Simulated scan of single mutants.
Amino acid sequence: MDDTSTSPLITVAELRRALGSDHPPTLLDVRYKQGGAPGAAEFAAGHLPSAHFVDLDRDLAAPPGSAGRHPLPDLDAFGAAMRRVGVSAGRTVVLYDDWVSAAASRAWWLLRWAGHTDVRVLDGGLSAWRAAGLPLTDHQPGPENGDFKPVAGHLPTLDAAGTAAFTGLLLDARAGERYRGEVEPFDPAAGHIPGAVNAPTMENVGPDGRFLPAEQLAERFRSLGVGEGETAVYCGSGVTAAHQLLAMAVAGFEGTLYPGSWSEWCADPSRPVATGA
C-alpha cells in the first residue's frame, strides 16, 4: 500500500485511495457485538468492497475455558484462517468493525503479536465509511491463498501469575461500573484486580466512534501514569484491552496485554478481588 503514515490508524480517504491503487491492502471485516446480531449475517447484508469476514470467536480466539472467554487462538488455526482471507506477509492488512474498532483492535494486536508488521485499523470503522457516502456490497468473496505464517511472541503478554507479580501500571479497560464491582454481566465475580487503575476503553473515542487526536490521547494516558514505567492492560476477555493498546500506540506509548483478563482472573476463587473505586 502506497502510504508512508506510521499511524496504526487509516482514514476513510486513505483507505479509498489504497483500494484503488496497484497494491491494495487485504481488507478484513471483524464485526462483532456482545449480545448483538451475528457478524457474519451483517457482513452478508453489506460490507466494504473486497472485504473478507473474520469471526472473532472462531478465528481470533480459542474456545472459552479456564484461560478466559477469549483465549489466544491456536497458532496453526489462526494462521490457516488468516491465509484463507488473503493475509500475506508483504501486504498491508486493514481491519474494520462496527464496534468502535474494539474487535478490529483484537485482530490488529493478534496479527502484530504473530509477526505481521503492517496492520492498520480503519478509524471510525463501518460508520465512517457510510458517513462518507461510500458504497457497500453484498458480494461474498471466495477463499484466498495468503502466505502469512504466524510466529507467536512479537508483542509482550502476561499470564495470571505474571499479572499478580506485575509491579508497573495495570490498566483495567472495562466500564467503571464493572471495575467497581457494581455490575458484572459476563463473568462469575464482580470487581477488579487489586492495584489496577480504571481507564475505560470508550473514553478513547469521540461520539462518532473515531479515536481522539493523538495529543489528546497522550494527555489522557499521561494523567493515568502511562509513560512512567511499564504498563499492562486487561479488560473482560482480552478484546477491549487490545483497543486500549491501539489507542496507546496512536499516542506513542507501548504496553503489555493480559489476554486472559478478568474472565480468567476471577475464574479462580483463590485470586484476590477488589471492589470500589
Rank of each mutant, 00 (worst) to 15 (best):
G168R: 00
G125V: 08
R180H: 11
G176D: 13
D187I: 10
W129V: 11
D118L: 08
A160I: 00
Y179G: 05
A175F: 08
A175R: 14
G142F: 04
V151S: 13
F148N: 10
A175Y: 01
T163P: 01
P135R: 14
P188C: 12
D123V: 08
V197I: 14
P200R: 00
T240P: 01
T240E: 10
D159S: 01
G153Q: 01
V239F: 01
A190P: 08
H192I: 07
P143S: 15
A218Q: 13
G191E: 08
G209F: 01
T167R: 13
D118S: 15
A196F: 08
V183K: 05
L217G: 01
A152Q: 03
G124T: 03
P188A: 15
E228K: 15
G176F: 04
E203V: 00
F211R: 02
F148W: 09
V226P: 01
R180V: 08
G168Y: 00
E203R: 12
G238W: 03
G146S: 02
E177V: 14
D118T: 14
I193S: 00
P213N: 09
L224H: 08
T167N: 13
A173N: 08
G176K: 08
G229E: 06
A214C: 04
T137Y: 11
D147W: 13
R180L: 06
A214K: 09
W129I: 09
L169P: 02
R220T: 05
G146T: 07
A190H: 08
F186Q: 12
G125D: 11
A232I: 04
R174V: 12
D159N: 09
T117Q: 14
P188N: 14
A128L: 11
I193R: 03
R210D: 02
E177C: 04
A161V: 02
P213H: 09
A199C: 14
R130T: 12
A131K: 13
V121E: 09
E184I: 05
A152T: 08
L171E: 04
A175W: 01
P213T: 10
A199K: 03
P213M: 10
E184F: 06
A131M: 06
R178W: 06
P156A: 15
M202E: 13
E182Q: 14
V233R: 05
V183S: 10
L224R: 02
A175M: 11
R180A: 14
T137L: 10
D147K: 12
H139E: 15
P207C: 00
R210S: 14
H139N: 11
D147F: 06
A232M: 03
A175V: 07
P200Q: 01
E177Y: 00
I193L: 14
